[in-house]
Design a binder for these strands. Structure first.
Lengths: 345, 345
DNA sequence: ACGCGTTACTGACGCGCGTTACTTTCGTGG
DNA sequence: CCACGAAAGTAACGCGCGTCAGTAACGCGT
């Protein structure tokens, strides 16, 4: 592979100085370049197939024009995350609009040193997805004043965060079940409660019940953990204790496992148990039955996170917390309650 | 935010030259540094919280130590790709093992200029996922000798590619149905046939039928297109023409739509129609019925692609084509054929 | 003829680091 | 006592570019 042309080569070919080449190619304002010269430079650059070395440009300019996305999740979480690709797309679009790139680092909890991405100047800012409370590196990074945006939430950390409104979404889901006349409404979380999204969604569930004057019955609650099998297990736990007439599962993927559990126990959905879940993965519309679910605007989430970190990098103030609205999508997995709770066949 | 310390600062603090600092921190071989000096340098670096500026290092070293992943897919494809996250994880792990990073560029077909990633020296090599035949930039890039690896396949392009063995996988799926006694086996593709993965899987289907002495009946074949709704539509097309007793769908996601179509038409799976699909997304095990499917080793695919591009960057020869093996996972959606084809209720 | 402003450019430095070639010091065998 | 080599370390250049201060040429009014 032949050596790449440099701006000096272009300068020589155009018969001008390197400085002039830089001025022309960067369309620098405040500098007058006659059209004749400009054309000569552009022609030379085109003829040589010149592409400015962006690494050198970064060094000279002091910014890397790259955003780091740190996935602080276990491999299982990543594999089961139905909306990660969409979020990434939103982030990439936000970055591209500002002439930045996205650098991805997948790093399971416990693994360290992702902060090198920032401290080494490889990225101008970091978006951290799904951090845990015990993320010491992150705390230090924020304390040192580096541009960081959390995707999700991390109470107690003085750092802007972008998230979907989990609480309102969950409340909306449960209110839908209440409006249909259901009263014994179970809840399976999307993850262990150490995850803020999980505890927020559980809070939304409880708020809706409380607002309807219903008691908070721990028998109706079980913990899921990202994948379908956890939903299956959680469902079995609940059914061993009691029989709900409706179910809120805080994740479509977990809901699929939960519904499998219901089927095995002889319950039909929505005949015996209405089910509403959360996320609105594309598949949800094609399950049997099609899932009523809360739409999580994944693309917008990535876009908002990208815009937030770009603002922070630019030194502009950013809202401490951005909450994206959710939306209820009613499908066939929820139906009105009909009198007594049905018994399994 | 205070200025980051440079190697000169460390040198001053340790009372040595910048060169020595570089030697110590990079553990350069062939250079003897007494332990006392080494410790002094390391201590100074630690005290100043020094992190080498990787951009400067890239400039000096001539390599960016970054791999570019270009997603040449439509937003719909990305959203419905159940294994993209896994592939990305494999790629990121491969990169990390070689001290590289992954830079992601999502670029729908038709949009241009992703080649800047490479030509500007921002990345050392590119992995292009799902390119189309008319990708002029890609052809030019390969012709110019830049390190590129295709994830998928692109016949006619002189460039290493890494893919799953689609043909063998599809053959395995159909052979499984044949072994169960099925004879009227329909096929719904995962994508339009312009996509090589789709046409390869269709070829595998045809080969299996031919090997069993069965005719190639076009009535039994329909085209899917990435998402569940396309599977639903394709299923309707087939059912309008004929009634199969088994079905091979070249994608789990599309299969979910197809099964919804079967249900609507009054057929049960696997009672009336056995279904086997492709990809083995995590959810497949929890559907109703759990799907028999061909496992696509997504993580390994990313890992292999990463290793291949790293080899190419290192200047070592790379196999023109790497095919990863698939695996049949038998679940409840396939059962033995029982005499006559059942009619819908 | 002279001063002054404008136009059209350029020289040279700095970004932070890797690296080569060189210097200085010291121990040692002859 | 001297030559020589190893040990320990350094000065200086280059990577490719952005950018500021500066300069040469020229027009113009007086």
């Amino acid at each position: 592979m032949l050596k790449r042309p440099t701006s000096a080569d272009v300068a020589a070919a155009a018969g001008v100085s390197r400085t002039t080449v830089s001025f022309v190619l960067n369309e620098r304002e405040g500098v007058k370049i006659p059209d004749e010269t400009r054309q000569r430079v552009l022609a030379a650059a085109a003829k040589l197939d010149y592409h400015p070395n962006s690494v050198a440009r970064q060094l000279a300019g002091g910014a890397s024009r790259a955003l780091g996305l740190v996935l602080r999740q276990t491999p299982e979480q990543v594999a089961n995350d139905g909306v990660l690709a969409e979020t990434l797309r939103g982030l990439a679009d936000a970055a591209r609009a500002a002439n930045h790139r996205v650098l991805v680092e997948t790093l399971a909890p416990g693994e360290g040193l992702y902060s090198n991405l920032l401290r080494s100047g490889r990225t101008d800012g970091l978006i951290v997805s799904g951090p845990r409370y015990d993320d010491v590196e992150l705390v230090q990074l924020v304390r040192d004043g580096f541009p960081v945006v959390i995707q999700g939430s991390q109470p107690g950390l003085d750092c802007p965060s972008v998230d979907v409104d989990n609480e309102a979404g969950a409340r909306m889901a449960v209110e839908h079940l209440l409006a249909l006349g259901h009263r014994r409404i179970a809840c399976i979380t999307n993850a262990p409660l150490a995850y803020t999204a999980a505890s927020e969604r559980l809070t939304g569930y409880r708020e809706a019940l409380a607002a309807a004057g219903l008691p908070d019955d721990p028998d109706l609650i079980a913990e899921g953990a990202f994948d379908a099998s956890s939903g299956h297990r959680a469902m079995a736990e609940i059914l061993a204790r009691t029989t709900p007439d409706a179910l809120f599962v805080a994740s479509d993927v977990v809901a699929i496992g939960a519904m499998a559990g219901l089927r095995e126990a002889g319950f039909s959905v929505p005949g015996d148990v209405s089910v509403v879940s959360f996320d609105a993965i594309p598949l949800a519309a094609y399950l049997d039955p099609p899932l009523t679910t809360i739409r999580l605007p994944a693309y917008d989430l990535g876009l908002a996170a990208g815009r937030a970190i770009l603002e922070r990098i630019a030194g502009r103030p950013v809202a401490a917390r951005t909450l994206l609205p959710t939306e209820l999508i009613v499908r066939a997995s929820t139906v009105p309650h009909h009198g007594a709770v049905r018994r399994p066949v």
